[in-house]
Amino acid sequence: MGRFFNIDPLAETYHAWSTYAFSGNREDWNETIIEKFQHEIYENDLLILSRIEILPEYRGVGIGHKWIKDFYVNFIQGCGLMALKVFPLQCESDHTLGRDKDWCDEMGYDKMEKGNDAFESLLQFYLKIGFQIFSDISKTIIFINPLLRNEKF
Rank of each mutant, 00 (worst) to 15 (best):
L84E: 05
G64Y: 07
C91D: 15
L123R: 10
W29H: 03
I48V: 15
R149C: 04
S18A: 08
S135P: 12
C91A: 05
L81H: 06
G24K: 10
K36V: 02
C91W: 03
G108I: 10
L127A: 03
I48N: 15
V86H: 09
I34G: 04
Y58I: 01
F143Y: 15
E35V: 06
I7R: 07
D94L: 12
M82F: 11
R26A: 05
E40P: 02
S121F: 03
E113A: 14
L89G: 12
F125L: 09
K111Q: 15
C91L: 02
N25G: 02
V73E: 11
R99M: 09
G24E: 11
R3P: 00
R26Y: 08
D45E: 13
H15G: 01
V61S: 01
I34C: 12
Q38D: 15
E120V: 08
E53L: 13
V73N: 12
L81W: 05
E27W: 06
I142Q: 04
P88K: 02
V73T: 09
E106Q: 11
N25C: 05
K139S: 08
T13S: 11
N30Y: 06
G64P: 11
D102Q: 11
H15V: 09
R3E: 05
Y14M: 07
G62H: 01
G80R: 04
T19K: 12
G78Y: 09
Q132F: 10
K36T: 04
M1Y: 10
N74I: 02
M82P: 09
S18D: 09
D28K: 12
D105K: 13
N74M: 09
F87L: 12
S50M: 08
S135E: 13
G64M: 10
G108W: 08
N30H: 14
K85F: 08
I48D: 13
G64L: 06
Q90H: 00
N25A: 01
N116P: 14
P56R: 07
A118Y: 00
I68F: 10
E27T: 03
G24T: 05
E113P: 13
F131A: 04
A16L: 10
Y126A: 03
